[in-house]
Amino acid sequence: MTPSENIIQIKNLSKNYQDGFRALNSVNLDIRKGEIFALLGPNGAGKTTLINMICGIVNIQEGEVKISDLHNIKDYRKTRALIGLVPQELTSETFETVLSTVNFSRGLFGKKDNPPFVEKILRSLSLWDKKDNTILTLSGGMKRRVLIAKALAHEPKIIFLDEPTAGVDVELRQDMWEVVRQLKDDGVTIILTTHYIEEAEQIADRIGIINQGELILVKEKDDLMLELGKKHLQINLTEPLKQLPLELMDFQIELSPNGKQLIYTYEKIDNTGVSLLLELLSSLQIKYSDIDTKESSLEEIFVDLVNRERL
C-alpha cells in the first residue's frame, strides 16, 4: 500500500496524561482512503484519546499523525478541513437552533454558507422538520443526529464517529448506518468506535482492537472472522451419555451436564474434524437426532482477544 492510498498515517503515537496515566502506547496505524475502519476496545482503552489526538483536540507528546500525507499539526488548516468529528458525549450549544448550530459548524471550517447543502444534510438525517427547534428540546437520539449533521456540514473527507449509536434507538440506529453507508459510497473514509460490536461486524471493512493503550490487532474484518472465528457443532444425542467416551478425547469436545449434547469446537479454516467425528460416533453406535452449527461472533472474538491480553 503506497502512502497516498493511506489517508491517515499514525506513527509511534503515545500519550501520558498529567496524572501519569499512559493512555496510548506507541500506536502505529494506517487508515485507507474510503474504508470503514472500526476501532474496538473496552472502556478506557484509548479509543477517544487516539481520535482526539488525530483531530488536534489532545496534544501530541510522542509520535506523529499525517492526514493525506500532511502533518496534522504543522499543516493543521489543510488537515483539519478534511476531518469531521462526531464526539462521544452529546455536546452542543443547548440554546441554539438546529439550523444555526449546523451553519456555525460549516463556517467554523472555513466554508461559505450553502443553504441547499445544509438542507440536504438535515433532510438525510430526518432533522429538517426540527431545524428551528433549540437543541435543548431534542431527544438524545436527535441530539446525536445534530452532532452528525454538524460533522458533515463542511463536507469532510474523513469522518470520526466516536460511539455514534450510544443511546440511540434501533430505528434511528439503522437510519444512521444507512447514512454511513451512503458516505462510504461517496468516498468518505469512516473511522468508528462502537460498543455494539455486531454493528462493526456488519458495516466495517477492517477492525482494529485497542486495549490498555496498545493496538493489539488490525485485520480485514473477513480475515479476522475467518482466522480467529470458531465454529461450534452441537450434536443432540438420542440417548444421554454418562461420560465422554475415551475415543472422543482427542477432539475438542464437551459433554453437556445433562449428557444429552456433545459440543465440538473447531477452527473455521479447518473443518475436516467434523466428518471424522461423525464417523467415529457411528462406529461407537452413538445415535443423534439433530446437528446444529454456530459461528463465533466478532464480540466473542473481541472478548477472547482482550482477555488473552489481560492474562
Binding site: N52, G56, T79, I83, P87, T91, E93, S105, L108
Partner: peptide, 16 residues
C-alpha cells in the same frame, strides 16, 4: 460555556 458544555471540541478541531 463551550468549555462547560463540551462543545469547545469543535473549535479546537477546526482549521482555525
Amino acid at each position: 460555556f463551550p468549555k462547560f458544555s463540551g462543545s469547545i471540541y469543535e473549535v479546537l478541531s477546526a482549521p482555525i
